[in-house]
Structure formats: structure tokens, C-alpha cells
Design a protein around this nucleic acid. Structure first.
Lengths: 164, 164
DNA sequence: TTTTTAGTTCATAAAATTATGAACTTAGTG
DNA sequence: CACTAAGTTCATAATTTTATGAACTAAAAA
């Protein structure tokens, strides 16, 4: 008798529930369902590294859904993978260390909006000074925040170093 | 001869282009097309306050699209309106002053994710201490940020007061 | 060389989102 | 009261997004 020895990913109810919650949370931030759940799975899975098949099976989705989801997440730099010699499979894991870059990216996105607001100020009629001033105030505030957030990162690093 | 004296909203090419850009920017942040463009219109319009019909006409959309868009934006607190006695129409305008609240809301959203990450830490197997530690670090950093952002708001208010 | 494994691609199906127009409501106006 | 203007609702249409399964590819194993 031959055993099919693919060790299946077994998820507790708690884990499944949390995957859904995390999935919904990422969906709310604009992610699509499958990638969102893949991230959730990688967060709660006992094994931090999962193969293509394990993901497909654990989430009960099609191979193509897994393929698309994984490639999207790789491209977004939310996950990465390793391989082991003598094993053609890729082992996917969260790029947790990447939150620092994500944080910067988010700031950049907001900064991009600020650029648009500056354009608004240029295009706006001068007949509405009070209104224009209120937009200017927003622009200034966002500038202030974008200047200071990197400092916050630095300070965090410093405090980490002081007591690790 | 009778003139139809509804003063139409005339948009320059520059304004139209900017409305599109702002629209796309909001869409990228998850807004739907019509509300995104209504916001864009209110940003660039020479009149900071526009009626239902003016919005409908300026954006060339259906009344229902305007209705839905406006109600969504009202609910999201992105716009508000005034009325004038003897005029049943509502005059919609951006709630620019509201960016402060929006900022807080965004922080709260991120904080919500942090709550989920704490749940992850509870559910995770103890067999992967290094991985768990890396998630813990993320949780701690986010906590740090959420503690410090309100301070940033305060400091900005202070500096404003010092030299207005 | 044939087979298996790991994964991609593509046409299509299913589902969800958005927008529309017509009918309807509601409150003032003449 | 009849009329109009302001806006909503609803069924439907159009579009977009998301997921699927089957066919395909490429590399390694047998």
C-alpha cells in the first residue's frame, strides 16, 4: 500500500476565521479577495512558508487563482519565495520586513495627492481667496506630515537601538 | 424672447483635465468614478458651491448617478451643503476642514489592522519564535506610529499659532 | 524518451459594480 | 388645486472584476 505523503495544511477554526478577517481587512484597503486571503493564510499558518499547492488546497481555490494571486503579491512586494535544491517548488512567505517600505510607499501616495492639490491652487480662480486659503492650509499640513514621518522612522530606529 | 437663465458651469480644458486626474487619484484610493469626479469638480470649480443640476450637467452624468454620488459623499462626510431661503436647491461644497478627521480615521483604520495582528500573534504556533518576533516588531512599530501621529497634529497646531 | 511535477495562459463563466432612464415622491408656487 | 422643481428609487443595462477549468509549457525524474 502506498501513502500519498503530501502533508496537508490543516487549519483550525480559529485560524480560518482569522484568515477571513484579515482577508476582509485587506479587501477593505482595495485588495482583491484571493490575494487578501493568501496574505491572511501566510499570517496565521503554522508553517511560515507555503508552496503553491498548499495555498491552493488550504484556500480551496483554483490553480489559476493561486497563480494570479501569487504573482500579484510578488509584484506588490508583499510576498517573496525561496527554493531548495532538489525541489522545484517555490516556498512563499510574507515579506514582513517590508512594512517599512510599504509605509514609505503610502506616504508617497499621499504626497502624490498633494501635488495635485498644488495644481488645483494654480488653476483655481482668484475670486475665492478664503476657499483657496483653506486648500492651501491642507497642502501645508500634508507637507508638514510628510516631512515629519521619516523623522518618526528614524526616532523609532534610535529607540530600538537604545533598548533592544 | 425669454432667456433660460440657468448660469451653466463652463469648464476650461485645464479644469477638465485636472478633474480627471483628481478623479483617478481618488479612484486609486478606492472611490468609485462618479463620486471621485464630483470631488474633483468641487476642487477646481470657480464656484465652491454647486447645485445638484450643475454637477449633473458639468460632469454629463445622469441624475441618479449624481444622486447616488452625492449621498455617498455626504455619508462619507467628504461634502456638505447649505440652502438659502426661497431656494429649494442644496448647494454642495467640499468639507475641506474635514481633512483633520479624515487623517484620524485613516490612522484608526491602520490601528484596526494592528488589532488583527495581535490576534495573529495569539493564534500563531509557538514553534516559530523568529517569525513571531518579526510580526511582533511590526505591531510595536505601528503602535509607536499611532501614538506619535496625534502629537504631530498638536505640534502643527502649535506652530500655526506661533506664526499665523 | 516518456512521464510527472510545477506552474502559466487563455477563453469563458459567474458575480459584483456602476450607470442609466423612466417613474415616482415631496414640498413649495402660482 | 394643479403645477413645477428638486431629488429619489428602482428595474435594467453596461461594464468591470474575479474565478474557473482545460489546455499548454518547461524542467526534472524515471
Amino acid at each position: 500500500m502506498i501513502f500519498n505523503c503530501k502533508p496537508k495544511i490543516v487549519l483550525t477554526e480559529k485560524q480560518k476565521a482569522l484568515i477571513e478577517k484579515i482577508g476582509i481587512s485587506f479587501e477593505n484597503e482595495g485588495s482583491q479577495p484571493v490575494p487578501a486571503r493568501i496574505l491572511g493564510l501566510l499570517y496565521v499558518s503554522d508553517k511560515p512558508e507555503l508552496t503553491f499547492d498548499e495555498i491552493t488546497e488550504a484556500l480551496q481555490i483554483s490553480k489559476s487563482a493561486t497563480s494570479n494571486g501569487i504573482n500579484l503579491l510578488l509584484q506588490m512586494q508583499r510576498i517573496e519565495y525561496t527554493t531548495f535544491s532538489g525541489d522545484r517548488r517555490r516556498y512563499f512567505r510574507l515579506k514582513v520586513s517590508n512594512w517599512r517600505d510599504e509605509f514609505r510607499t503610502k506616504i508617497d501616495t499621499m504626497a502624490g495627492f498633494n501635488v495635485l492639490l498644488r495644481e488645483v491652487l494654480e488653476v483655481r480662480t482668484k475670486e475665492t481667496p478664503a476657499y483657496n486659503a483653506s486648500i492651501k492650509e491642507l497642502v501645508d499640513f500634508l507637507d508638514y506630515v510628510f516631512q515629519n514621518l521619516p523623522l518618526l522612522l528614524q526616532k523609532w530606529d534610535q529607540e530600538k537601538k537604545d533598548r533592544p
